[in-house]
């Protein structure tokens, strides 16, 4: 299904985003547009600024200049932003981290219910009901009463996905969701992500899983040194990369 670009509304828009740490420019004028329902994969060497880009999208980091729009909510760098706006912005952008970051002192159900209660104002009962549905969806209905430490890495990451989905985000951001996992456990996480993509979720995925990028993403972005080196249909970039730097990176990843 390919509608003309103009007919699909834009879910995420980055406009000339710059982020510096001290005098180190980590994002150098990055612009990026993600349409509703699109799956964008971001690849690139370590230190390229991929994580920083995702963190800017949901405002875990504030950019130094540029504009970030998520689901119609625009934030200009340097503008004052109220707590309420910040929360509203983050709610629509769910985030999944490389290291899962579950809350180890809470059981799995509480991990998923807590933010529903505190952020969406759901009752405990409604939140738990929704959490169970989501656990079921990621294939972990039997883990509700367990603590995260009793779950495998792959299970923990699926729980983290359920936790993010519980806030009914408009877009999902994944930062190397399988990098901390054995390949086999990574597959079960990728399967959940694939399903999510099939259901039409807008996703931005930073990944080293080239197979996933090739099969699932609609659009591939290659980042190097804080900038977008090239972007386009994954098939095209994989078969004939436009830059020597991309070629070297792809070779290095495939040889791993």
């Amino acid at each position: 299904m390919t509608l003309p670009a103009t007919r699909q509304s834009v879910a995420i828009e980055l406009d000339s985003v710059v982020k510096r740490y001290g005098d180190h420019t980590v994002l150098d004028n990055v612009s990026l547009s993600v349409r509703e329902g699109e799956v964008v994969a971001i690849i690139g060497p370590s230190g390229a600024g991929k994580s920083t880009l995702l963190r800017c999208i949901n405002l875990l980091e504030r950019p130094d200049s540029g504009r970030i729009t998520v689901a119609g909510h625009a934030v200009d760098a340097g503008s004052e932003i109220s707590n309420k706006e910040l929360v509203a912005h983050r709610r629509v952008a769910g985030m999944v981290f490389q290291s899962f970051n579950l809350f180890p002192h809470l059981d799995v159900l509480r991990n998923i219910s807590l933010a529903q209660e505190r952020v969406l104002g759901r009752s405990r009962k409604d939140a738990d009901k929704r959490s169970k549905e989501l656990l079921d969806r990621v294939g972990l209905a039997d883990k509700a009463a367990q603590y995260p430490s009793r779950c495998s890495g792959g299970q923990q990451q699926r729980i983290a996905i359920a936790r993010a989905l519980a806030l009914e985000p408009k877009v999902m951001l994944f930062d190397e969701p399988t990098s901390a996992l054995d390949p086999e456990l990574g597959l079960e996480v990728l399967a959940v992500m694939r399903e999510l993509a099939d259901e039409g979720m807008t996703m931005v995925v930073v990944t080293h899983e080239m197979q996933f990028a090739r099969d699932v993403s609609d659009h591939l972005v290659v980042m190097v040194d804080g900038a977008v080196l090239e972007e386009g249909p994954p098939e095209e970039i994989f078969s004939k990369p436009g830059h020597e730097r991309t070629r070297r990176f792809l070779r290095a990843v495939l040889e791993r």
Binding site: N58, L60, N83, V87, A88, R90, R91, A93, G94, M95, F97, N101, L102, F103, L114, A115, R118, V119, A160, R163, A164, L167
Partner: peptide, 9 residues
């Protein structure tokens, strides 16, 4: 960070 990303104050 995960809590912030979930919109928790």
């Amino acid at each position: 960070e995960a809590a912030s990303a979930l919109g928790m104050v």
